[in-house]
């Protein structure tokens, strides 16, 4: 059965390739706006490019997870989740993972290219990649939780980000701190461990939390 569910998730993304490409294009679009606004001075970007990459990653995850349950809600599939006698948590877990895989993973693949554009040293760009790899699943999970809270209130697209961005702060701080540590030659393992701890904390709980939240918010 897991096979079938995975196949269905894959089909959902591959039949709408826009779902995969648009976040990537959006990411590059925002990244390339910064030099236009701030001027292309290398010294400046050496200092702020990790922050720019992270803020852009946040914007991307917000936009991809904002209306995560909208279609399922309009089609009535949320009702299926809630009236099922099977383990819906598994389905929700697959949905989180596939959302991350198809919207964030492509960005990770292109981080070396971004490093090239802004001439980020190899080691720094690897740490950026590592923090994004551990951090974005947490962001996506929190974003999906936000979209579950605001189920059926989609007329207000800015509501969900306003509610969930404060919850992004720990991930942001530790990621930024790891990147800063590596660029000043300090040890960064501690921050990575904390990020990993956040991931291990959030990811297993999230499907259960989501099911509970959907059960409440379906009556919004």
């Amino acid at each position: 059965m897991i096979n079938m569910l995975v196949k269905k998730e894959l089909a959902l993304y591959f039949r709408n390739l826009n779902n995969i490409f648009l976040p990537l294009v959006f990411f590059f679009l925002i990244i390339s706006i910064f030099p236009l606004v701030l001027g292309p001075e290398k010294n400046l970007f050496d200092k702020i490019i990790p922050g720019i990459i992270w803020i852009t990653a946040i914007l991307t995850t917000i936009l991809t997870s904002n209306n995560f349950f909208k279609d399922d809600f309009n089609n009535g599939i949320i009702e299926i989740y809630l009236t099922s006698d099977m383990s819906v948590e598994l389905v929700l877990f697959l949905k989180i993972i596939s959302c991350w895989f198809f919207t964030c993973f492509p960005i990770l693949i292109f981080i070396p290219l971004v490093s090239l554009l802004f001439s980020i040293p190899f080691q720094n760009s690897m740490v950026i990649l590592l923090t994004l790899f551990i951090g974005t699943p947490v962001l996506i999970s929190i974003g999906i939780f936000g979209s579950a809270l605001t189920l059926g209130l989609a007329k207000n697209n800015i509501l969900t980000p306003v509610i969930i961005i404060p919850f992004y702060i720990p991930v942001l701080i530790f990621s930024a701190s790891a990147i800063e540590a590596v660029s000043t030659g300090l040890p960064f393992e501690m921050q990575i461990y904390i990020l990993a701890a956040l991931l291990i904390l959030v990811l297993p709980i999230m499907p259960y939390l989501l099911k509970y939240t959907l059960g409440l918010s379906i009556n919004n």
Binding site: G76, I77, E79, I80, T83
Partner: peptide, 30 residues
Amino acid sequence: MDKIIYIGHKNSLNNDFSVYENLEYLSAFD
């Protein structure tokens, strides 16, 4: 719910799936 099946007035069908795929997908919840 293991004795009950519920079919709402929304059809619970995913527009990106074919008819067969939808029935296959929905049966995973039952």
